[in-house]
Amino acid sequence: MKVESYTYPDSDDVISLPGKISGPLRSQNVLLVFDPGAYRTIIKTSLTDALGYQAGAESKKVATSSVIGKEYGYTLKLQKLSILGFAFADIEVASFDLPEKYAIDGLIGLDLLKKFEILWRHKDRFLEFRLL
């Protein structure tokens, strides 16, 4: 069983994990927010566009309600999404035009996080991911 530990920076920023997204045009090393409160992994539309993705016949329209109102987006199947040392091929994510002021490329939600047993020790800024 593959295990990887990660010590995140000592700051009051949200917790982000390094990863990589591969698209038709290029691959990009990114930071994605660790968000167990999100039902689904979300990647910002401007990033998926820049990687060469477009909504296709397989895409579904999706919406999320939040304190900022209702947001609309669509699903995309990514060629590959890697988080830390774990790579997932042909993985479906939601693409939303997230507000620019939050300064994030996307977030890792429960659909991906549930694939792991996760040990989180915040006082040490320590996360350990064990792939189930």
Partner: peptide
């Protein structure tokens, strides 16, 4: 990076 508590929501079709 500041993300308010807004993404802790389910996404529906």
């Amino acid at each position: 990076v500041r993300v308010p508590l807004l993404f802790g929501t389910a996404i529906e079709e």
